[in-house]
Each structure stands twice: as C-alpha cells, then as structure tokens.
C-alpha cells in the first residue's frame, strides 16, 4: 500500500504509523457528560466496511499526521490531507 503524503509524495505504508479512525474528536473535558463522552472517544468505533477517514503518522518521513480517506474493503486511498488543519489536501 502506498500513501500519497502531501510533503513526501507517494511512499510505502511501512513508513507510516497508524492510529485509526479520524472521526472521534476529543470531547470537552469540563462538560457534565465528559466521562461518557470520553468513553465513546477512547473506546467506541464505527469500524466501517467502506470509506473511512483515518489518521496516519509519517514517522519515517516528514513526521506529519495525515488524514487519509481509505476504503477498508479495497484499501484504495481517495484523499489525503494534513490532519488537524486539513491543509495540503490532494
């Protein structure tokens, strides 16, 4: 599998570290339902069979965290951007 890093170009996936689903966002820790929200954030996953936005870290490259849109059935990658800011998309 090759990941088109916005900085480094298409590189083998073994240069990257995987974190998982990019959808969960860190909840407000001061909210009254923070315990439940954090449980969901840390543990619960949609685990879709199909396109999924996910976080990869180019550990052996530019050290940028990327948001990669990849189909979990075919491994086909359709979009990549820097995580967090969404810049550098391609």
């Amino acid at each position: 599998m090759r990941i088109p890093c916005p900085y480094c170009g298409a590189r083998s996936s073994h240069e990257f570290a995987y974190l998982g689903d990019a959808a969960p966002t860190r909840p407000d820790p001061s909210a009254p339902d923070a315990a439940e929200a954090f449980h969901s954030y840390v543990y619960e996953r949609d685990n879709p069979a199909g396109p999924m936005d996910e976080l990869w870290y180019h550990s052996a490259g530019c050290r940028r965290w990327l948001k990669v849109t990849r189909d979990t059935r075919t491994h086909a990658i359709t979009a990549v951007a820097f995580a967090g800011t969404g810049e550098g998309g391609r």
């Binding site: 543990y43 619960e44 996953r45 949609d46 685990n47 879709p48 069979a49 979990t72």
Partner: peptide, 16 residues
Amino acid sequence: TSRLTRLLDLRLPIES
C-alpha cells in the same frame, strides 16, 4: 461484528 451491530446503531470497542 461491527457490520451487524451497525444495523442496531451500536458502536463497539472493536476494529476489524
């Protein structure tokens, strides 16, 4: 499992 539990609107602490 997640493919089936999605039909029940359940999210589980698992990944495939």
